[in-house]
Computed example of a mutant assay.
Amino acid sequence: MALDTPKTELNSLGFAKAPKDTRVLVAMSGGVDSSVVAAQLASEGYDVVGITLQLYDHGAALAKKGACCAGRDIHDARRVAEEMGFPHYVLDYENKFRESVIDEFADSYLAGATPVPCIRCNERVKFRDLLETAKDLDADCMATGHYIQRFMGSEKAELHKAADGDRDQSYFLFSTKQEQLDYLRFPLGHLRSKAETRELARKFGLPVADKPDSQDICFVPNGSYASVIEKLRPGAADPGQIVHLDGEVLGEHKGVIHYTVGQRRGLGIGGREPLYVVKLDVDKKHVIVGPKEALATRKVPVREINWLGDEPFESREEWHVSVRVRSTRAPKEAIVRPLSATEAEVELLSPEEGVAPGQACVFYETEGTRIWGGGWIWRGY
């Protein structure tokens, strides 16, 4: 009679082998989050390999405070690896980053959109190119310091919101493909606060325990998008007219790139009721303004959809979900009607203000924490 084969327990990363036999590549930005991930896994005995990406000019990076992947951050990541005793490498991804993220950011902005380059960086650099590097190094998985959760469902790996709603980064990770999700791990997603992360950093004696969080987009100094666009695309800031929805010309502007949909301050057209930017007409070089109610939108066209549901996206005429149209907004109930495998019309059950092309529209489970995917808003109203 055959004996039952004893079941091998899974380690904390979900593999049926000892941590020392499990190689994990940790994407290290030099900040406290990814440093804690690397230190935690190293302390558990995993075969950790730390990788930091140099994404833009090293000299310029050293002069910029508060940005990820800068020269100081590379130094900090290396120090953490030395403290914890695992190998660390710096990869020059400057050309890939420019081609995959920065150039599109500039072109989208010039087209009147409000792009989110951090999403493209995760999608095209960290979770594509770096993930392939991890596989080339025979890593069993890749871990990051993102605040999001990955659970094994009955069908496949699922993406869920972080336990800490204030730190949840699901908006920036909606485009993660299923095959990437199968390979990725997010060890911080279950933590309830950033204070817990910093306490772990102190526990491991990490030099970055009290390092401030980065605030700006890494290649945008002081949050000035327009200055970056002018540098990347000389002559982009052509002047034009500020026009009311009723057609009245209210003034002049110094370039459409200085404005975003929903903006109120800095218009320079005082003396009337409060006005907001409701649309950017790049071809006519018009900044179109109107009252706050003109920003309200119910119908949102979405394309480049990444679907993480268990059933095919087109298997239903409509999906009842919650959606987030800005990273700073809470999800609101909506109906998503597929037009193809990658396009849909989203109907918001209550109108949203400031819906802008170039932003993401992320789909969530209405009752629960699961992320169904999402797409890109591609046309304004």
Rank of each mutant, 00 (worst) to 15 (best):
K64S: 12
S224Y: 11
P221F: 02
L159C: 05
T260A: 07
D76T: 05
G240A: 03
E9M: 10
G358A: 12
E311V: 11
H190R: 02
S154D: 13
L245R: 15
H160Q: 04
F363V: 06
E365Q: 15
L349T: 03
G270T: 10
E132A: 15
F15C: 08
K135G: 10
R326V: 03
A60K: 13
V125S: 04
L137T: 04
E293S: 13
H190Y: 06
V287T: 10
P301M: 01
W376Q: 13
V243K: 14
K279D: 14
D210G: 04
P19F: 05
V220H: 05
L250H: 04
E82L: 06
E196D: 09
G380N: 15
V32R: 02
E352I: 03
V256R: 06
W378T: 10
V101Q: 06
P19L: 04
L339C: 01
K231H: 11
S322N: 14
S100V: 11
Y381W: 13
V362N: 07
A195D: 14
G235M: 07
S227H: 11
G270Y: 08
T369M: 09
R264M: 11
T133L: 12
P87H: 03
H75N: 13
N11L: 08
Y171T: 12
A67D: 04
V325S: 02
G240S: 09
C118S: 13
R370S: 12
K126F: 04
E158T: 13
T5G: 06
P357W: 00
S43H: 12
V336G: 05
L91R: 11
T328E: 15
R326H: 14
P351F: 04
V256Y: 00
V220N: 07
E365P: 01
R303Q: 10
A61F: 04
I269A: 05
V287W: 10
K299S: 11
S340F: 03
K17A: 11
R326Q: 13
E179M: 08
V278Q: 09
G374N: 02
F86Q: 03
M1V: 09
C68W: 04
L206C: 00
T328C: 10
R264Y: 06
Q169M: 12
T297N: 12
A143Q: 03
K292E: 15
G271R: 04
A296W: 05
D103M: 08
L62A: 09
D216E: 13
F15T: 11
E252P: 01
W376R: 15
R379N: 13
R233M: 10
L110T: 11
G247C: 07
G255Y: 01
L267M: 01
V321A: 06
W378E: 04
D166R: 15
L206Y: 08
C121Q: 04
Q40E: 15
P351S: 08
D138Y: 11
E158K: 03
D168F: 02
P117V: 02
C218W: 11
V36D: 00
Y56H: 12
F127R: 00
R370Y: 07
K194L: 10
E343A: 14
F174P: 09
V336A: 10
G374L: 00
C218F: 13
G375W: 01
V49D: 07
V302Y: 06
V26E: 02
V277Y: 02
L41T: 04
L349W: 00
V37Y: 03
L295H: 05
S34H: 02
N222W: 07
A63D: 15
P312T: 08
P87E: 09
L159N: 02
A209G: 07
A38T: 01
